[in-house]
Design a protein around this nucleic acid. Structure first.
Lengths: 143, 143
DNA sequence: CCCTTTAGTTATCATTTGATAACTAAATGG
DNA sequence: CCATTTAGTTATCAAATGATAACTAAAGGG
């Protein structure tokens, strides 16, 4: 197995994934939400409940900056803090009702883009894609 | 084939890919190069020669902003313009000798991270991963 | 009970990035 | 050969992001 060649493929692959997801998300515009704030929202959506430290670590933002941006999201009533009764320094962050509605709308749009992209594929192609995703997910992407 | 479920998997998958590539690249710091400038360099490296319009389109930057950032990269002597003799409004952009050396260094570091990540996998795992990447690349990611 | 660590806040400043208008110069098309 | 389109430039301003210092308040450990 040529690991150098695999690395080359990996580079092209990740660059394609970034390209495709960029194209799929670029038209999605939410009023009064910046790019970083959107990433935070997306992270909360996928991983909720999360702590501020987790946001900070996973999105490579400093704690002060995470705090600032979260504050704006809370002011926009898109997410909320739920104090952890075991450790009152911490708190869990969840989407509010509003936030959930918003992110559902975003993901529906994303799914339309996705379905558009796969609409010409056969069932056996889709099956192969599913398996490929599973292999990468279990063997390579999860730590 | 449940396309809705496939979408869910796709979302988790892309989020994992972003996470992993973020982690692999986050320690890579080049002096006097901003994030956007690095993305431009990366794009040139993978796709050279490129035009300014291609940079602008693929990285979702306006032409004026692309021009500004490219100017800085040229001032840092990391890339250069090569006038297209067929159409003198256009020009191709390539890495300079310096830029090539720099990006080689970056990619070597990236490759070390990559090898570290796969070091415990068997040859048959790697073979599966390679095939999975190929399937996604040909059936899903390329337009 | 005190000291240290952890988790987050607030304020401030510099830098980066985004957006837009007004421009040049070359190509293209009738 | 003139008008329009294409490709890129320059300047300027506003907004977003990054970095850091000084802070609070709770938890944990001896």
């Amino acid at each position: 197995m040529d690991k150098g060649k695999l690395f080359q493929q990996f580079v092209r692959f990740t660059s394609s994934v970034h390209q495709v997801t960029n194209d799929m998300t670029k038209e999605i515009k939410i009023e009064n939400i910046t790019t970083v704030q959107y990433k935070i929202l997306e992270f909360i959506t996928v991983s909720q409940p999360v702590t501020l430290s987790e946001i900070s670590e996973c999105l490579h933002l400093s704690l002060p900056n995470s705090s600032r941006e979260l504050k704006k999201l809370i002011q926009s009533q898109l997410c909320e803090k739920i104090i952890d009764s075991n450790d009152r320094r911490k708190f869990d962050i969840c989407l509010t009702e509003n936030g959930t509605v918003l992110m559902n709308k975003v993901f529906r749009q994303l799914e339309l883009n996705f379905q558009e992209r796969i609409k010409n594929l056969t069932d056996s192609d889709l099956k192969e894609i599913e398996e490929a995703i599973n292999i990468l997910q279990t063997k390579f992407l999860s730590r």
